[in-house]
C-alpha cells in the first residue's frame, strides 16, 4: 500500500464514517454499532469509553474486519485507512493489513495466546507472517521485543508456555507481539482491565512509551475514565451503539456536555477529592440495543430529557475545537430553556 499520496493526507490515518454493524439474533436485530464516525490522526491516542455492551469492541472488530458472520454484518459506512476503504479489501489485502498496518491487543491475553505453544513459537510465527525473516532472525527479534516490554531473563523465558507467565507478563507478551509488527495503528481493547493497578501502570506506560518511540497511533478501549485522562489525546464516548460525545480529552473533562458523559464523570469516586455523603448516580439500566426506537437512547436515564428526546435521535452538534455532542439540549431551534 505505497501509493504516492502527499504526507498531508496521511495525517488522517484512519477515518471511520457512518459505520454500522448489526447482529441477527433470535430476539431481533442487535444494532451493536449504529452509525459512528471518528478520525484517528497519525501518532494520536484515541480513547473509546462506554458501558458494557455499548459497542466498543464491535467497533474495533469491524475496523479489523473480524466480525463473525453470521450473525454479524457490517451493514453500512466506510473505514478509510490511508484513504483506502478497508471494508472493500480482498482477503489477501486484509491479511496484509492486519499485523502490518493495524495490530490489536485483546482484553484477555489467554484467548489470543495458544496455551499449547511456547511463547517463542508463537512470536516467531507472528513475525514471520508479516516480515520476511529467518527463524533465527525472528527469534532474535522476539527476544528483543520481550526485553523491550520488560520480561526479565527474556532469552530463557521466551521458551515458556503462556500459563507459566503471570497475567501481567502475558499482557506484556501480547503488547510485544503487537508492536513487533511495527504497525501504524495499535488497537488495544481493555488491555489492562484484568490487571492490578501497579501492573496496569507499568503496561500503560509501556504502551505510551513505545507508541511514541515507534510513532504508532493508538485506539484505546477502556471503561476507566482515569486511564483515559492519563493516556488519550481525544475521547469518544459511546452509548448504545452511538458516539454521543467526542472531544479533546481536556475539553471533555473540563466541559462534559452530554448528560451521560457528565453523569459518568461525576459518578466515579475520586481519590483526590474530599467527599461526604452520596455519590452522583445515573439511575436505571443501560438500554437493550435490540429494536431500539429512533429516540435518544439515554432519555430514560436522563435528568434533562424533553419530549423530543423520546421520539427522535438528536443530530450531532459541533461545539467548536472538534468537540461534538449528540443531544437535543444543544440544538438551537429546539431549545425551550429547559435548564
Amino acid at each position: 500500500m505505497t501509493n504516492a499520496t502527499s504526507p498531508d493526507t496521511y495525517k488522517r490515518l484512519l477515518e471511520v464514517k457512518g459505520l454500522q454493524t448489526y447482529f441477527k439474533t433470535d430476539a431481533g436485530i442487535v444494532k451493536a454499532v449504529d452509525g459512528i464516525s471518528f478520525t484517528l490522526n497519525k501518532g494520536e491516542t484515541l480513547g473509546i469509553v462506554g458501558e458494557s455492551g455499548s459497542g466498543k469492541s464491535v467497533t474495533n472488530l469491524s475496523i479489523m474486519r473480524l466480525i463473525p458472520s453470521p450473525p454479524g454484518k457490517i451493514v453500512g459506512g466506510e473505514v478509510l485507512f490511508e484513504g483506502k476503504d478497508i471494508l472493500k479489501l480482498s482477503e489477501g489485502e486484509l491479511r496484509h493489513l492486519r499485523g502490518n498496518d493495524i495490530s490489536m491487543i485483546f482484553q484477555d491475553p489467554m484467548t489470543s495466546l495458544n496455551p499449547f505453544l511456547r511463547i517463542s513459537t508463537q512470536m516467531i510465527e507472528t513475525i514471520r507472517l508479516h516480515q520476511s525473516m529467518s527463524r533465527r532472525e525472528a527469534l532474535a527479534k522476539s527476544i528483543e521485543m520481550l526485553k523491550l516490554v520488560g520480561i526479565p531473563a527474556a532469552e530463557e523465558r521466551i521458551h515458556s508456555y503462556p500459563h507459566q507467565f503471570s497475567g501481567g507478563m502475558r499482557q506484556r507478551v501480547m503488547i510485544g507481539m503487537a508492536l513487533s509488527c511495527e504497525a501504524k495503528i495499535l488497537i488495544a481493547d481493555e488491555p489492562t482491565t484484568a490487571l492490578d493497578v501497579t501492573i496496569q501502570a507499568q503496561i500503560l506506560e509501556l504502551i505510551q512509551e513505545l507508541s511514541k518511540k515507534l510513532d504508532t497511533a493508538v485506539i484505546l478501549i477502556t471503561h476507566d475514565l482515569g486511564v483515559v485522562a492519563g493516556m488519550c489525546d481525544t475521547v469518544c464516548v459511546m452509548y448504545a451503539g452511538k458516539i454521543v460525545e467526542k472531544a479533546k480529552t481536556d475539553d471533555l473533562y473540563a466541559n462534559p456536555s452530554h448528560p451521560y458523559t457528565y453523569g459518568l464523570i461525576q459518578s466515579v469516586p475520586r481519590l483526590d477529592k474530599a467527599h461526604d455523603g452520596k455519590l452522583f448516580s445515573i439511575e436505571g439500566q443501560p438500554p437493550n440495543v435490540i429494536d431500539l426506537p429512533p429516540c435518544c437512547p439515554f432519555h430514560p436515564r436522563c435528568h434533562k430529557a424533553m419530549d423530543i428526546c423520546r421520539t427522535q435521535y438528536p443530530p450531532t452538534k459541533d461545539l467548536g475545537n472538534g468537540h461534538e455532542v449528540s443531544c437535543w439540549l444543544f440544538i438551537d431551534e429546539k431549545e425551550h430553556s429547559h435548564e
Binding site: G168, V197, A201, E205, D224, G230, L271
Partner: peptide
C-alpha cells in the same frame, strides 16, 4: 505510595502533572 500513585485519576490536568512510582516486577 506506589499503589496510590498508580491509581489513575479522572482528570487529565492532574494526570499530566503526576509523578508515578512505577514498581518493577510482579507480585
Amino acid at each position: 505510595k506506589a499503589l496510590l500513585s498508580a491509581a489513575p485519576i479522572p482528570d487529565p490536568v492532574i494526570e499530566r502533572k503526576r509523578q508515578r512510582i512505577i514498581l518493577t516486577g510482579d507480585v
